[in-house]
């Protein structure tokens, strides 16, 4: 059985990595529409990508959107997790279902709903769509990642440590600062990382919530993939992204041990 599992794992990893390898190969494929097999190898797409301000701008926009959405999700998700863990109240079950809803409903539904609501409410107030509307859209479906991580951690640790801290005379904020927060840190990181990743690669909700001139990386890729002059550059960007993804994972590992890099596995 161990051998079979080992083989399945190897095949699974091959399944995951062969298409990524192809992306890498196509980033040096001389053919503009990735003909197979590649006729010639070129570095000109890498040079073009390096000189491409649009891609760099889009990367920055995407990081901003993902950071914004993650920050909001961290606050909202933790608040609900605490409420659900510490209190019994009317509608608690409904609330936990409601939190799952934004990620469980198809993105196109969330997208068009937020779009038309934004136009009819915020539009009336004179606030057009922009980066902020993207952040709002992303935060809505990111809340669940934080909520689940934090709630699971709270359930595992219970409240005894906090009670002990209070018994020893700590003020509530001291308890939070020195007891609760350190306990939650890796859960927040794991949830935050997943939330960042979700937001970073989101395209459908983004399509409907982005204002004029707001180009996140997936949107940039979407518009450029469909132009043969630019399509190979997109492969370069994707290859770079895979390499860059080491950064958040490494950061998480440093800050919270290996478990955080693995999403919600620290419990």
């Amino acid at each position: 059985m161990r051998l079979t599992l080992r083989v399945v794992m190897a095949l699974g990893l091959a399944f995951i990595y062969v298409p990524l390898l192809l992306v890498l190969v196509n980033s040096v494929n001389g053919d503009r529409t990735f003909a197979w097999p590649p006729r010639d190898i070129t570095t000109r797409w890498w040079a073009a990508a390096w000189a491409n301000d649009g891609a760099r701008q889009a990367l920055i926009t995407s990081v901003q959107a993902a950071l914004g959405a993650t920050a909001i999700a961290l606050v909202l998700g933790s608040l609900v997790a605490f409420a659900v863990h510490r209190f019994a109240f009317f509608g608690r079950d409904t609330l936990s279902l409601l939190i799952v809803l934004p990620i469980a409903l198809p993105g196109i539904v969330t997208g068009i709903a937020l779009d038309s609501a934004w136009r009819s409410v915020m539009g009336e107030l004179g606030i057009g769509k922009g980066l902020f509307s993207v952040v709002v859209g992303h935060a809505t479906f990111c809340v669940v990642t934080i909520y689940n991580n934090v709630l699971a951690r709270l359930r595992r640790t219970g409240t005894s440590l906090e009670e002990a801290s209070a018994d020893l005379g700590a003020k509530p904020w001291q308890t939070f600062r020195y007891v609760t927060f350190p306990l939650l840190r890796s859960a927040l990181l794991a949830g935050g990382l997943l939330s960042f990743a979700l937001s970073f690669d989101e395209i459908i909700v983004t399509t409907f919530t982005a204002g004029p001139g707001v180009t996140t990386l997936p949107i940039w890729i979407f518009t450029n993939l469909f132009r043969p002059n630019q399509a190979p550059v997109v492969n370069v960007v994707a290859a770079v992204l895979i390499v860059l993804s080491v950064v958040p994972v490494w950061l998480a590992q440093r800050l919270a041990g290996p478990a955080a890099g693995a999403g919600r596995t620290g419990h």
Partner: peptide
């Protein structure tokens, strides 16, 4: 090996959805 395997499984999430789909278009051509 465990955390490394987890990272290996998660890394593709960072490569753009569209780019991966298009890579499959080439694979399936």
């Amino acid at each position: 090996a465990r955390p490394w395997l987890v990272i290996a499984v998660l890394t593709p999430l960072w490569a753009s959805y569209l780019v991966k789909a298009y890579a499959w278009r080439v694979l399936l051509a």
